[in-house]
Amino acid sequence: MVTVRLRPLEEADLPVFEHAYSTRDGAGEHQWFGFSPPGRGLAEMGALGPHGGRLTVTADDRAAGSAFWFRREWGPAETSWCWEVALHILAEQRRRGLGTQALSLLTRYLFDHTLAWRVQAVADAANTASQRMIIRAGFTREGVLRAAQWREGRRHDQVLYSLLRDDLPPQP
Rank of each mutant, 00 (worst) to 15 (best):
Q171D: 09
A123G: 03
G46V: 10
L145K: 05
V4G: 00
R5K: 06
V16S: 03
V4A: 00
A64Y: 11
A102F: 00
L164A: 06
E152R: 13
E152A: 14
W32H: 09
C82H: 15
A77V: 15
T56E: 00
T79L: 12
R40M: 15
M133S: 05
D61E: 12
R5N: 09
N127E: 03
S130C: 05
A116P: 08
G75I: 05
L168N: 00
E18S: 05
A102L: 03
L42I: 12
S22L: 04
H88L: 12
S130M: 07
E92Q: 14
G41R: 08
L168F: 01
T3C: 13
V85C: 15
A116C: 09
E152D: 15
H19G: 07
A148E: 11
C82Y: 14
V2T: 15
A121K: 09
E78A: 14
P37A: 15
Q120Y: 06
A27T: 05
R155Q: 10
H19I: 01
R146P: 12
E11T: 13
T56A: 04
M133L: 08
G75C: 10
T3G: 11
D25N: 08
F17M: 05
I89K: 09
V4I: 05
R62P: 03
A67T: 08
H156I: 00
L90S: 09
L87T: 04
A59T: 04
C82A: 15
V16A: 00
A64R: 10
L48E: 12
V85E: 12
D167V: 06
W150M: 14
R151N: 10
A126E: 15
L163W: 00
A77I: 14
G34W: 01
L160R: 15
E142S: 06
S22R: 04
A27G: 05
E73N: 12
L168Q: 10
G53Q: 02
W150F: 13
W150L: 13
R71P: 02
A129S: 07
R71T: 12
A63C: 05
T128F: 14
A137T: 00
A27E: 03
D166C: 06
A91I: 06
W117Q: 13
P170E: 05
W69S: 02
E18P: 00
G28N: 14
G138Q: 05
A129K: 04
E29G: 11
A126C: 13
A67K: 12
F68Y: 12
I89M: 11
V122L: 03
L106M: 01
W81C: 15
T107A: 09
A63D: 02
L110Q: 06
R136Q: 02
E142I: 05
V57E: 04
T140P: 00
Y109F: 06
Y109S: 03
F33A: 07
Y109R: 07
L14W: 06
D25P: 02
I134R: 01
A125Q: 08
W117R: 13
E73M: 13
F35Y: 13
L87E: 04
T79K: 04
